[in-house]
Amino acid sequence: MPNGEVIIDCPKIILCEGSGDAAFLRHLIEVRHLPRFYLTYPTHHDPGKPGGRGGFTERLKALKLIRGFEKVTDVLVVSDNDDSPTRRFQEVVELIEGAPGYSAPRAPRVPAGAGPRVTIFMLPTDNTPGQLETLCLESCLSHWPEMARCLNAFIACNAHLAEWDQGKQEKMKMRTMIASICSSDPNTSLTHAWDRTEDIIPLEHECFNDLSNFLQAFGA
C-alpha cells in the first residue's frame, strides 16, 4: 500500500522493491495462510527520487511518520540479488544505514538492532543470482511446461537476446509467459498476474517454500 497509508496496523513490516513484489507477497501470504504483515514499497511519484530498491532509504524514513509505527517491532527488507548477491546485499545494507534509527544486518536473514529489528531477505535466495522473476518463472514453467521450449526458441531467433544477462532474460520470459497465458488481457503485468482467472504462477510451487517458511517463522 504505497499511497494514502494512514496507519500501520501490524507490528511487522515487509518493505519490498515495488508493486509487483508487493502483489506477489500479498498473494503468497494469502495462499499459504502466512501471518499478516504490513506491506509497503517505495513510490515512484517523484521524478527526482528513485523508487524500487533505490527508494528504500526514503521509504524507511517516511514510515516513521505513519501512525502506528511506534508499535512496529520488525522490518523485513526483501530485495533482489540480481547478478551479484554480495554487491546487492551490501547495497541494501547501505540503503538501510542511510535511514537514521535503523540498524543494518550483517547477513541475510539475521536480524539487527531493536525498535525495530531489521532483517534482510534476498531473492531468489541467499547467495544465488536472480530476482523474484527467477522464482516466478520456475513456478510458471512447471505449470506450463510446453512453453519453455518455445521461449528458448524465441531467444534463439533473436540473437541480441542471447547477449542479455540472465536477469533480463528471466524478466523477458516472465512477461512473455504472462502475455501468452493471460488471454483476458495480454498486457497484464506481474503486479496483476494473480488477479486473473488463469493460474499463471502457482504459489504452491516448492520454489517458494524457502521464502514461505521464512515468512512463517518471521511472522510468528
Binding site: 497509508e5 517505495p42 513510490t43 527520487k49 511518520l65
Partner: peptide, 9 residues
C-alpha cells in the same frame, strides 16, 4: 521523506 514518499502523516 514522508512528503516525497507521499505517506499520510
Amino acid at each position: 521523506s514522508a512528503i516525497q514518499q507521499k505517506v499520510e502523516f
